[in-house]
Amino acid sequence: MKLSRIPQQVIPLTIIFALAIVALVAARQMLVPESFGKYGHYRADAVEEVASHDISYAGIQVCNDCHDDIVEVKQESYHRGLSCEVCHGPANNHAEAPDEYTPGAPRGRGYCPLCHGYNPSRPVGFPQILPKMHNPGKACMTCHNPHAPTLPHAPEECSACHREIASTKMVSHHTTVDCRTCHTVPKDHWSDPRAVHAEKPTDRSTCGQCHATGADSPKIIPRIDIETHGGRYLCWDCHYPHHPEATL
C-alpha cells in the first residue's frame, strides 16, 4: 500500500495514539516503585516498612529478665499466666531506658474490676466481685497482692466465686437450698479451686431426697416417680437444677 493512499486523517491520529502509549510506557518505567512486583502485585519494600514500626509492649521475657523477685512470687500465683504489661501498660520505653521511664501501676479500685467485676457474660467460675458491695472505698491492693492475688481468707460463701450460679439460683425455687445439699465440697477446693473440684451428683437419688414420691420433705415440693419418670435420662439432662422451670 502506497503512503499516499493512506487517508489523511489517519496520520495525525496514529501519531497522537502512539505518543499516548509511549507516554504511558515511559511513565510506568519511571514512576512504578522499584520493588513493586518482586514477590507479587505489591511493593516489596512495604513489608519492611510495616515490620519496622516501633514496639510499645516489650513482652513478658524482657520484664522477667530483671524483675526476678516478682517473677518468683508471681510464678506460684493465679496470675502466673499474665503478662506484666496487662496491668502496668506498655513498657518498652522502660525496658530500653529503665531510669528514664517508669511504667504506671493501677492502684485504685478502677482497674481490677475490668476483669474481676461481676458480669454475667463471663465464664462460670471466673473469680468476680460486685465492686459496689465489695469493701467499698478500699483500694484492691489493701487486701490483695496483685502479683500473688491469693485471697486474704478463703470465702465461705460459694457465691464469692460462683456469682453467676448464685444469681440464677437466687430467683429460682431452689433459692433456699444450700449448695452442699447436692454438691460435696472438699476442703481443698477453697484454697485451690482449679485443682480440686466440687463433686456433682451422679444419679437420681440426689434429687429424689426431696422430689421422690415417698420423700420426707415439705408437701409443697413437687413429687415425681423417680424410677419411671423421664425414661433413661438423668434429672439434669432436662431440668436445670439451679433454676428449675416447674411452677407451683
Partner: peptide, 18 residues
C-alpha cells in the same frame, strides 16, 4: 483539524465510514 484538511469526496466518505 489536526492538519487533516482534505475535504475531497474520498476523505469525507472515509470520515463517514470511520
Amino acid at each position: 483539524s489536526l492538519g487533516a484538511t482534505s475535504v475531497s469526496p474520498e476523505s469525507i466518505k472515509f470520515d463517514h465510514k470511520m
